[in-house]
């Protein structure tokens, strides 16, 4: 017989896990979109070296498993941090994971941003130049605001996938929502109940967010 009663006393710990998950998600999306936008601009650059490097970056990170990136950055980020700053202060699993997510997701976000930029007619860019704007001003004031409006649903959809993928941090021992549920379940000896509960929470949040995105998409389509 299933016993879900033990979940209630575990809620504070699970909430802590959810806070970590959401914090990691928000920071990863923010960093990923910024880096992804820079990658998209580099990819669309007329300089072959710059666009080549960006293309390699995107293809590389899209061709390797996220779990590998997380595990590898867990080892490498502290080394680089020490090398850069000379300090041996521990970096922490959270920062390592954040860097891994930002760099990995940037590859996916950059493809969305690139499509968004390319969907803006060339006339808009020329109109900006004709009004005396430099390349960076044209991008910042004309192209990107319009492009981001168009891509918001896609970026949100990608973020929902990332919300689920954050659970991979269990590999380096971070106590996110899933890992918290798993360890609490083990401690009280009710692993099935806790995992079922965690699954329900992921389902409700992801499903709800997807419905929201769909409604948003309809509004933006007008």
């Amino acid at each position: 017989m299933m016993d879900f009663s033990q979940i209630v006393p575990a809620l504070p710990a699970l909430a802590d896990g959810m806070v970590l998950t959401l914090k990691l998600l928000a920071m990863s999306v923010a960093g990923g979109v910024v880096l992804g936008t820079l990658l998209a601009l580099a990819r669309l650059s007329s300089l072959p070296l710059l666009s080549g490097l960006a293309k390699f970056y995107v293809n590389y990170f899209r061709s390797i498993p996220l779990l590998l990136v997380i595990s590898w950055f867990y080892l490498v980020v502290p080394l680089i941090y020490t090398w850069l700053t000379g300090s041996f202060e521990p970096v922490g699993a959270f920062t390592s994971c954040l860097v891994a997510f930002v760099m990995f997701e940037a590859a996916y976000f950059s493809e969305i941003v690139r499509a968004g930029i390319q969907s803006i007619p060339k006339g808009q860019v020329n109109a900006g130049y004709a009004l005396g704007m430099r390349y960076d001003q044209v991008m910042r004031l004309i192209v990107l605001p319009q492009a981001f409006r168009k891509m918001t649903p896609l970026l949100l959809q990608q973020s929902i996938i990332l919300f689920q993928d954050t659970s991979l941090v269990y590999a380096v021992g971070l106590l996110d929502f899933l890992n918290a549920a798993r360890s609490k379940g083990d401690i009280v000896g009710l692993p099935h109940e806790f995992l079922i509960f965690a699954g329900a929470v992921y389902f409700v949040i992801s499903m709800g967010a997807t419905q929201l995105v769909k409604r948003l998409q309809k509004r933006f389509a007008v």
């Binding site: 007619p121 006339g123 808009q124 020329n126 109109a127 900006g128 130049y129 004709a130 009004l131 005396g132 704007m133 430099r134 004309i142 605001p145 319009q146 409006r149």
Partner: peptide, 18 residues
């Protein structure tokens, strides 16, 4: 282009929709 004191009216107007 952006340093030329020349204005342009485009065929499709290219107004900034946002």
């Amino acid at each position: 282009a952006h340093q030329r004191p020349i204005g342009m009216v485009f065929q499709d107007y290219a107004l900034f929709p946002h």
